[in-house]
Every structure is written in structure tokens, then in C-alpha cells.
Design a protein around this nucleic acid. Sequence first.
DNA 1: TACACGATTTACT
DNA 2: GTAAATCGTGTAT
Length: 206
Amino acid sequence: MTDISNKIPLSFFEDKDVLALARSLLGKSIFTVIDGKLTGGIITETEAYAGIIDKASHAYGGRRTKRTETMYKPGGYSYVYFTYGMHHLFNIVTSRKDDPQAILIRGIVPTEGLDIQLERRNYIKNKFHIANGPAKVCQALGITLEQNNIPLSGDVIWLQNGELNTEKNIITCPRVGVDYAGEDALLPYRFILSHPDYKSAKNPLI
DNA sequence: TACACGATTTACT
DNA sequence: GTAAATCGTGTAT
């Protein structure tokens, strides 16, 4: 069950090295309490978005709009946005205030509130498909725009340290769906944790 | 105001 | 494998 003493503090996300941070999130647990329901899982896939010099980032070139304003918050805030007219994507803002770096959570292995996650996912039959994609993660955990721009240290969304040794089980590869970013689309900013209960939807190696 | 498109998922040919 | 779903956002007019 949840151990509140194990909650990861906001200061953890103020690290300026978003790549190291994205890698270190693998194996950690994420929990949400939304609509009064506790759900959670082990983070198994992340992508780093490296601030104003990253052509794949919404904040490229220092773009600052109503949507991206959240990315300029201090590390530890949530950045949730809506895309394709139907999907929500959840990010963790990192680094310091006004340095808009973020980590997209692309996949989890559900561990808490599995029945609730299945209900939200329309009782999908293949257990590997419950949360193996960034929009599926949001759907399974109940995350919508209502959870945008909140600190990840409260009782709505938070992270906890895991017990897995992930060091030798991480695959690094290019990010997904960022062809518009030109040469930056090839950067190895995506991290996947090998886990017996996880199959990445967008990687043939796993 | 108008338009093109997206850090995706799902169903279907 | 391909295409539809579906609308907020960013940028141009």
C-alpha cells in the first residue's frame, strides 16, 4: 500500500539534467487519487524534452503561451495537455523556474487499483495494453486537464521510490511522433525499462 | 476569424 | 498495413 513517508519531494525534480532524471524515473511508482479512487503503477517508459533548444519541445525557442506556461514552473509540477481532439498526455516539469524542461510519462505497469484502471480503459482484454502509451497512462490513472499545473507532492498525484534495480535493464532510443523536430527527432531521449509485465507499443525490441 | 496540424489510439481493409 | 476520430492550440490573415 501507499507509504506516505516514501513520497518523492519536489526538490528531486529540480535537477537540471532532464536526461538523467528521465532515466532515473524508471522503476519508480506513480499514484493518483482522482474521483476518490486510488490508482498507481511502476513507470516503465519516459521521454525527455530538453527545454528551449529542443525542437521537439512545446517550449522550443522559448515559446511561452497559455498552454506552455506550465512548463516554466519549477520542477515537480504537472504539465498535462490535450491533443488529437481526444487524448491527454502527462508530463513532469523539471529543472528550475523559467527553464521549461519536462518528462513525458509514456508507460506504466499497473499495480494499484487495477480494477479501476481496467474500468477506465473500457475493460481492454490484453493486460499489456492497459497503460503502454502516454494517452493510455492518463486514461488509466484518470488524469485530465483538471490535474494540469499542480505540484506532485500533494494527495492527487505523487511519486514514490521503487525497489527495482533498473541500472542494467534500460533501453535508450529516439522519441516517438516528433518527426516535425528535424534532426532532434533522432536524439536518444527515450528510456524504456525491461519488465516482464510491460510491452512498449512503439518499440519492436521489447 | 481562418486554417493546418498534433509528444495518439483504435478499428478496419 | 492504413485511416478515421476529433478539437484545442499556434500562427497567419
